[in-house]
Nucleic acid binder design. Structure first.
Lengths: 162, 162
DNA sequence: TATTGTTATACTCTATAACTATA
DNA sequence: TATAGTTATAGAGTATAACAATA
């Protein structure tokens, strides 16, 4: 069935000779599907956050800092953001009073990034929106399928090199 | 266990009081995991293709056109690329002689994009590299897990709105 | 010498608006 | 009136190079 569609390069004789087919070639590539689904997820997230004036990277940073203060390196790494690109993100969040750079105890090179009270409040409301976006995106999958997907992705990610 | 880590905002007394923890909050969000894994996949693809002077979008376009000529709209859609952003991609590929714009039979607005012989040859070699990248990226998963992931992603994607 | 945070910069990606030619 | 392709442009994301302060 897949082999049957061949090259189809010679153009025939009828009208509508080209019907847009499902791109089997790409659909068989898990890597490409991942990139596609990731872009889609990012797009939806960006749209959902736009109202609050935040972008996906801001959201990610706030989410992680929820668990406690971190130096910028340790914040950048799990976000998949390069430390130098994180600088303006932190700047913006600090400018809005959602977090603070503080001195790191025994190492004056580092800054300890800490959520402010206002940052925690903002996060709470923005989180609800994030959950809505996620529910929408994952709607085609059943609960158990969503769980399976999450497990697979978690096993996939830790290996990701910088 | 999760609740036990609390806010940890007050700084204590010992050295190394902050240990970079796994970001549980984000790891529970399938949407964010998707975006992360997608970005990683894209990054690896970009690196692997760099030698041939191609980028992920080029690769995707060539892969799809393998199945036969298409008008630009029908090429853009499955790639998740906006038609206007596809224009320069097609330009570049055409400039390298990997494909051609041709007249579309009964509708002079459209261009039928067709792989050239050289395009097919290039694709063959680039494909091998792509498969290597994918193998690397998916290495943490077993064969059957990779298949499961592919199935889930395929079910997830068709709904994706533009 | 190596590491943390930073700047400057360039290139890619994605999106907003609007135009041309065809239908 | 609507659609396919296109242009111009701006903003966000990502990467290359290099630097200052500190370890």
């Amino acid at each position: 069935m897949l082999a049957a569609m061949g090259q189809a390069e010679a153009q025939g004789d009828k009208e509508e000779l080209i019907t847009p087919r499902v791109p089997e070639a790409l659909m068989d590539s898990t890597g490409f599907l991942l990139a596609l689904a990731g872009a889609e997820s990012r797009r939806r997230w960006a749209r959902g956050l736009a109202r609050s004036g935040l972008r996906p990277a801001h959201y990610g940073a706030l989410m992680i800092l929820q668990q406690g203060p971190l130096p910028q390196q340790d914040l950048a790494q799990p976000l998949g953001i390069d430390p130098r690109n994180l600088v303006p993100i932190i700047d913006q969040l600090e400018g809005r009073g959602l977090l603070r750079r503080q001195p790191y105890p025994n190492d004056r090179r580092r800054h300890l990034v800490t959520l402010t009270r206002r940052g925690r409040e903002t996060l709470r409301s923005v989180r609800r929106e994030g959950e809505r976006v996620e529910r929408d995106m994952l709607a085609p999958l059943s609960e158990s399928e969503q769980a399976a997907l999450r497990v697979l992705l978690r096993r996939l990610l830790p290996t990701a090199p910088r």
